[in-house]
Design a binder for these strands. Structure first.
Length: 948
DNA sequence: TAAGTAGGGCTTTTT
DNA sequence: GCCCTACTTA
């Protein structure tokens, strides 16, 4: 960035030191430069000391950089600024608690102290392990909450909820909730109702049902509701809209017990953490807030005369409130760019910057409700803009704006005019504009990326600006590959290594998703209980096909060398030793394996985990994709791969925006995952538990099912992510996609070119073979054709699939309910038919059974397999039932072929029974008998498939 | 021909 | 849970 001297707008801001400022500083507009200059300007005034100015950043790196730059721009030296409050919210909170906050927990009715030895738990996985320890203990000592835990699939999700509440400033105290916290848990009916009405508007001038009604057409499917749950027809109504009364009906619920439960878990966990002498990031801010809120002397003692907050779009609700408590005057300056707000999962709330004035008023009023805590005036707020971009060409800047208004899905409608109005367009400072903006698509996307990089390097078409300001041909180091997911980047890196293309991954790697960690997990599973899941992976690694693996698992004929290795491992005393031996055996070395080893050892040291717990820990780590920094020594001239989130603030001459594929880039917005969630619908539990007929049983909560459908999916943050990625580029932007380009890339004003990657000039360097040579001698290993293969080959028409599986699980559900003496209200056509079918049957039911039929075709052994929807066995008969909708009736003859595969298997299984087949139609409940084809006829079919 | 219904495939980011 | 696509219905 060449921004010397400051431009007019920067200079104005640098000079405006008194009063409230909201600064819209877009990408590459010299924000850091201006902020540090402003800081230098303030500090050079008479009577102002470094400790009077708070400068908040969001990363420690940013804080260090700010400090460096201030030193070069002010009369102060590094030594004088060492203790200056230029830091993150978290480290500020840490300092505050250390100095003044030992008694902070008492304000929440917790009789424990924060001490100098209180640790900060930074590793999310370690905290999760500690939380699990806590919650198990809590469950044991609080039997009154058994109902709640019974309805939860994973109690550790409560930790996410606690952290979310903490980020909003909702804390428990001894009696209830701190200050007005509880009101946020109740939700607001008006807010919910307006959401409800929005999604319940009929579309196409009233001729089309509302989005909500459309979504609810599957209400109750694969669900078991309590008998009081209204029928689908009642919920959906018979017009174009869901009846208005439904909004109130789903909202109204007595949540007092649920709130009490959450309160007690939350409060007990805070106590547990303090007792065990640790805090997490959230609790650091929580106690700092409580301290500043309740201890008026401390608050007044730490007040700052000037407050500056950088990257304000990344702040959370509690951080906004903390800022107000920390400010002693109205000299507050927040700097940020709403277009770059991409950290909502870290509780960043983009409305802090978008609705700045409104929130300022509201938060201050809340804080002043019982005591004058914010004493300075809240207006006027002066808005300022920085709009000269020193990074990119005008082409890149103009193009980047499209990202903010691009529909993310086929039906996503964007209010283009409204967004454009809020965007401050940037003007490029660059004197040239040579940008190439292009998109490529290939079945082998990763190879295509490597080929593209090879094409770019040394190519004047992609010229970049050199240190002397002249354009020159690009090097590897000029290129960065940005992806949304770490997965893709890691795989790309592996392939690049195979082709010897210089590439380095920057940022945290999901070390537990590497092969080394998966192998370790597999062997631990084998040691623990000979688990099939462990053996399967180990066998696969040794080169077994899926069929061979299945055969080995079934007969437990594990290869001798592997059994010996297991014995060897079982004699090792520590898990660290096991890990080391496994890695040694498979030749896993290097920094990644070291990190896995180190983490396993430290988990065992800090907690009291058994081997089974460690298995669970690794499973969590894989699932959570938890990352650890790995120092992979990269060469000097190499391509950088990183996630978009990791690149904020950085810039590269050439950006390759990869993996622009459907289901990859525009991912789930909205809210999901947690079983409990808040705002605007209040605290809810997804399932609830009830005692019926003395047998515990869990029902789905129909109200939550409806509520969730009222909360629309938002893609705004996805668009901003795309924007952030594009604005990293100084000169060129290249999008890449596989065979399913997403809507974004298709809607952006860039042409997509199909390419065939040519990597023939590279030397392919494949990894070594595995340590176990396995020879499997069973019938398995021959090609196996499933009915789906037939479909793929065009022998059967498409149209089979999910219904049968759904039917199978329905059968389980209903049968289980019936065994428990439950009465489940059949809801909808499918359920009614399942129920009537079950009523008409006696004997044994087998749902979702897989069958394999071996056939000799032209002297070769071929196995055909498939899933049986339902097998009904009585002493006399065995009936195969396939479940179809009316939709499929026309394909009856095709299903006859499929069912016949099962027929012969069942006939062999039950030689003394009469085997029959039937298709059960859901539309009218008709049960239609089907005649089986002979083996000869099936052989003919296989021949047809194989000969094309 | 537009609207409604059903089935298949997918599901992340980290101070 | 949601989007896309294929199919049915009025």
């Amino acid at each position: 960035m060449s921004e010397f001297p400051p431009n007019d707008k920067q200079q104005t801001l640098i000079n405006s030191t008194e009063g409230l400022y909201l600064v819209d500083a877009g990408a590459g507009t010299g924000k850091t430069f201006t902020v540090t200059r402003r800081y230098a300007n303030i500090i050079d005034q008479d009577g102002v000391d470094p400790e009077d100015i708070l400068l908040v950043t969001f990363t420690n790196n940013a804080a260090a950089e700010m400090r460096d730059r201030i030193v070069t721009q002010s009369n102060y030296g590094m030594r004088e600024l060492t203790d200056a409050p230029i830091q993150t919210f978290h480290s500020l909170a840490n300092d505050l608690l250390e100095e003044h906050g030992h008694a902070a927990p008492t304000h929440l009715g917790i009789d424990d102290r924060i001490t100098g030895s209180t640790r900060l738990i930074e590793d999310a996985l370690i905290e999760k392990a500690l939380f699990r320890e806590f919650i198990n203990q809590f469950i044991d000592t609080n039997p009154q909450y058994d109902d709640f835990f019974a309805a939860m699939s994973d109690a550790s999700q409560l930790l996410d909820l606690i952290k979310e509440l903490a980020s909003k400033g909702i804390f428990p105290d001894a009696e209830g909730w701190h200050r007005d916290g509880e009101s946020h848990l109740d939700g607001e009916f008006e807010a919910f109702e307006s959401l409800f009405e929005q999604v319940n508007e009929p579309r196409n001038d009233g001729s089309k049902q509302s989005a909500l009604r459309s979504k609810l057409y599957r209400y109750g499917q694969n669900k078991v509701y309590t008998p009081e749950a209204p029928a689908k027809e009642e919920i959906r109504g018979d017009g174009k809209q869901v009846p208005t009364g439904v909004a109130a009906r789903v909202f109204e619920e007595d949540r007092s017990e649920l709130k009490a439960f959450i309160h007690d878990v939350y409060h007990a966990y805070l106590s547990f953490a303090l007792r065990r002498n640790y805090l997490n990031f959230s609790f650091l801010q929580l106690f700092a807030f409580v301290l500043l809120c309740e201890d008026h002397d401390v608050r007044e003692a730490v007040n700052f005369e000037y407050v500056m907050i950088d990257e304000f779009q990344d702040s959370s609700e509690i951080q906004f409130k903390l800022s107000l408590l920390l400010a002693g005057t109205s000299n507050i300056c927040v700097v940020g760019d709403w277009k770059q707000s991409i950290y909502s999962f870290q509780y960043a709330d983009v409305d802090n910057i978008r609705e700045f004035e409104g929130r300022l008023e509201r938060f201050a009023a809340e804080l002043n409700s019982d005591h004058e805590r914010i004493e300075f005036p809240l207006s006027p707020v002066t808005r300022r803009k920085l709009d000269t971009n020193y990074r990119s060409t005008q082409s890149v800047l103009d193009f980047s704006e499209h990202a903010l208004t691009t529909p993310a899905t086929g039906r996503d409608s964007v209010d283009v005019a409204a967004i454009r109005e809020k965007v401050t367009s940037l003007t490029a400072d660059a004197s040239y504009d040579n940008s190439v903006i292009e998109a490529i698509q290939s079945e082998d996307e990763q190879e295509a990326i490597l080929a593209k990089i090879d094409e770019i390097v040394g190519n004047d078409r992609y010229a970049v600006e050199g240190d002397d300001g002249e354009l020159r041909a690009p090097k590897y180091a000029d290129i960065t590959v940005l992806t949304r997911t770490r997965d893709f980047g890691r795989e790309l890196l592996e392939i690049a290594n195979q082709y010897d293309l210089p590439m380095a991954y920057e940022g945290g790697i999901e070390v537990f998703r590497t092969n080394a960690a998966k192998l370790l997990l597999a062997w631990l599973r084998i040691l623990e209980r000979d688990a099939d899941r462990g053996w399967a992976l180990v066998l696969e690694e040794a080169g077994c096909t899926i069929d061979e693996t299945q055969a080995v698992l079934k007969h437990e004929t594990y290869p001798e060398a592997m059994v010996e290795f297991r014995e060897e491992l079982s004699e090792l005393e520590t898990l660290g030793g096991v890990a080391r031996r496994v890695f040694e055996c498979y030749g896993c070395e290097g920094p990644t394996a070291d990190v896995v080893l180190h983490t396993i050892q430290s988990v065992q040291e800090t907690t009291t985990l058994t081997r089974g717990d460690v298995i669970q820990f690794i499973e969590d780590a894989i699932e959570a994709g938890s990352t650890h920094d790995v120092n992979a020594g990269a060469g000097t001239d190499s391509v950088t791969v990183q996630t978009i989130h990791a690149t904020k603030g950085l810039e590269y001459p050439i950006v390759i925006l990869a993996n622009m594929n459907a289901h990859k880039f525009p991912s789930s917005g909205g809210r999901g995952g947690n079983i409990m969630y808040t705002d605007p619908v209040g605290l809810r539990q997804r399932k609830h538990y009830s005692e019926a007929h003395g047998v515990p049983y869990i029902y789905d909560n129909w109200k939550v099912d409806v509520l969730r459908r009222c909360l629309p999916r938002e893609y705004d943050e996805e668009r901003r992510l795309l924007y952030v990625a594009i604005t990293r580029a100084e000169n060129h932007v290249i999008f890449t996609a596989g065979d399913s380009p997403n809507t974004f890339i298709e809607e952006l004003p860039v042409e997509i070119t199909d390419v065939e990657p040519d990597l023939s000039s590279f030397d392919l360097d494949l990894p070594e073979s595995t340590p176990f040579e396995v020879e499997i001698t069973t019938q398995a290993g021959t090609p196996r054709f499933s009915p789906h293969t037939f479909i793929d080959e065009g022998v059967f028409e498409d149209g089979s699939g999910g219904r049968g599986m759904e039917f199978g699980s329905k059968v389980h559900e209903f049968a289980e309910a019936s065994a428990l003496g439950e009465s489940v209200t059949p809801d909808g056509r499918d359920e009614t038919n399942v129920q009537s079918l079950l009523d008409s049957l006696d004997g044994d039911l087998h749902a979702e059974k897989q069958a394999f039929l071996p056939l000799d075709v032209d002297g070769e052994r071929v196995t055909i397999s498939g899933v049986i929807d339902l097998l009904h066995v009585t002493p006399e008969r065995a009936e195969i039932v396939d479940y179809k909708t009316d939709l499929d009736r026309r394909a009856e003859s095709e299903y006859q072929k499929q069912l016949s595969v099962y027929y012969h298997v069942v006939a062999e299984l039950y030689p003394d029974r009469e085997v029959t087949m039937a298709i059960f139609y859901t539309s009218d409940g008709e049960r239609k008998p089907i005649e089986p084809l002979s083996k000869t006829e099936l052989r003919e079919l296989v021949r047809g498939v194989r000969n094309g």
